[in-house]
Lab assay of single mutants.
Amino acid sequence: IRCIGVSNRDFVEGMSGGTWVDVVLEHGGCVTVMAQDKPTVDIELVTTTVSNMAEVRSYCYEASISDMASDSRCPTQGEAYLDKQSDTQYVCKRTLVDRGWGNGCGLFGKGSLVTCAKFTCSKKMTGKSIQPENLEYRIMLSVHGSQHSGMIVNDTGYETDENRAKVEVTPNSPRAEATLGGFGSLGLDCEPRTGLDFSDLYYLTMNNKHWLVHKEWFHDIPLPWHAGADTGTPHWNNKEALVEFKDAHAKRQTVVVLGSQEGAVHTALAGALEAEMDGAKGKLFSGHLKCRLKMDKLRLKGVSYSLCTAAFTFTKVPAETLHGTVTVEVQYAGTDGPCKIPVQMAVDMQTLTPVGRLITANPVITESTENSKMMLELDPPFGDSYIVIGVGDKKITHHWHRSGSTIGKAFEATVRGAKRMAVLGDTAWDFGSVGGVFNSLGKGIHQIFGAAFKSLFGGMSWFSQILIGTLLVWLGLNTKNGSISLTCLALGGVMIFLSTAVSA
């Protein structure tokens, strides 16, 4: 259960009878995928790494000078000259100064003066180019299975845990398959586009800190620079940016070097996208990844198990997540596992009318040892309800109150669905055939309105939902006002479609 501690969480529900669903994975976010007769899966884009970055340009932001020398000439005696002028490691300046009897010249006039100092770069920052084909995306998957609280967001041991898996995709191999043991396998067909235009970005490294910066900004930095990788004795261009020549006297000129420019660069980098280094690879934390999940090989585990009949206890007080759902960790005293956990939410304890829904599909106890633990997640209705676990006299209950409203949740879900469709863009549509167009249209309606429909009408039977949709269509056909007619027709059509397409 990876997503319960992530604030940016998206719930995606598969269409009834569908074998695939489109998701948008982004750094700092987590996606929970639910479908009829399929286990619930949490998917998170953990890291995006980039390798084989080529150094484009380096800037010196802290330097020192040494070996200063000057040469001067009297008027009419030609130009002052130093051998160091031809050495690229030196920074030199030529000027004219007033000369006369007082400073060793027989004539009054302008004399030539040249001053040089050896330039040494102490600290530099480097910009590297990123090729999209060198990106690698690491995705962690977790099935809502027989897990306890100690396994949440624990990325170790996934090789031997059938509840978890790690997959890596690249532009050259965008397809992967996550093996989930008894739950089958989940196929991923990803489109490795981060949403960032790397043709316009460089990877900047300064003092063990890293950013993504725009090329134009990078090339306009007014500091000494050299092109390409460091060859040991780089040729620094624009050395004068960190060196200041003071007022010249008759035979000498003082040279000083400016202080470190790291603070000024940090100020200019305010708002830039931060990154990290992992050995020789860069780690990015921006952008998104679009994936199509193929769920035809994914299956529920323990459908044929019998119900657990022994007593359950709450190991922890049920807690609310950031998303309005409830996490419950229970301990089973029996030894008759594997068995299914009898769990439901009810409005009252007399009729036990089921409300809400299970995020953890078909929760089971897989071990036959005593005191096995299991964590599950529920989506309670707004208002008061009861969490009921167990059967008969051994069942345990917990009162729950959820604040908020169904309308607010439906609106929030619609906005999130619209954002998801905007990110998917043209990849969500198939114009290759008439059937493809209608299929894409259905998927689009489901992406945007599916979660809201589930919130508003999830407790009704599909037949009642179709009746309401048919009534809206009838009202649309018999209303003389054009805008009201079109609105009723659209709402009725969407409702009829979703009542037959969205899983219960």
Rank of each mutant, 00 (worst) to 15 (best):
L322A: 03
S16T: 15
Q331Y: 04
R73S: 09
T369W: 14
V257Y: 06
P354N: 14
A63L: 04
D384Q: 08
W462P: 10
V243L: 14
P380E: 11
N238P: 02
D155Q: 15
V328P: 01
L322Y: 11
V347F: 11
D430Y: 05
G28R: 04
V473W: 06
V114P: 02
V213W: 08
G106M: 06
G28V: 05
G228A: 08
N52G: 15
S461H: 15
A422C: 08
D220H: 08
M374T: 14
V355D: 00
L242D: 08
A250S: 12
L489N: 04
G408Y: 09
G145N: 09
Y386T: 14
G417C: 07
Q89M: 11
S72Q: 07
D348I: 00
D430P: 03
G458A: 10
W474T: 06
P318R: 01
L269T: 10
T170L: 02
T309H: 02
Q447G: 14
S372D: 03
G390T: 04
L289T: 02
D71N: 13
D155W: 04
K128P: 00
S58V: 12
V255A: 05
P354V: 11
K215Y: 14
H148T: 12
S260Y: 10
I389T: 13
V391G: 14
I221K: 07
L489H: 09
C121S: 04
W211E: 09
L424N: 08
H235T: 07
E329Y: 12
G184P: 05
Y203C: 13
V243S: 00
L307K: 00
T487K: 13
K340G: 04
V33D: 05
D83R: 00
K281D: 15
G195M: 09
K38T: 08
A428N: 03
A346K: 05
K294R: 07
R2H: 10
Y332K: 08
D189T: 05
I152G: 00
V434Y: 09
V12A: 12
E79P: 12
M374N: 13
K373P: 07
N481E: 10
D393F: 08
A35R: 01
E55C: 14
L322S: 01
E44C: 06
M53H: 03
V303H: 01
G432K: 01
T76G: 06
F285P: 08
V153A: 12
G493W: 09
Q253V: 05
V326R: 00
W429D: 06
V437F: 14
W211D: 09
H27D: 11
E274K: 06
G425R: 09
H398E: 15
W217G: 04
D393P: 15
T47P: 00
G334Q: 06
T479L: 08
M495D: 13
L186S: 11
S405P: 04
L489C: 14
A248N: 05
L242P: 01
S372T: 06
H288M: 12
A319T: 14
D155S: 13
A250K: 08
D67I: 02
S7F: 01
A452M: 13
T366Y: 01
K301T: 04
F453P: 13
S173T: 07
A264N: 11
G102D: 09
H249C: 11
V243R: 00
Q465F: 10
A504L: 09
K297R: 15
A504K: 11
T470H: 09
L498E: 11
V114R: 01
A504V: 13
R357K: 12
S405D: 06
G29H: 00
R94L: 11
H148V: 14
C116D: 09
E13S: 01
I4N: 13
V347K: 03
F382T: 05
V437I: 14
G127F: 05
T406H: 05
G442Y: 05
E133H: 05
P338Y: 07
K340I: 06
A229S: 13
V473N: 03
V31M: 08
V328Q: 04
P192W: 07
T254G: 00
P75H: 03
G334W: 03
G271F: 11
T95Q: 12
C30F: 08
Q36H: 15
W474R: 04
L441D: 06
F411R: 05
I359F: 07
G425V: 00
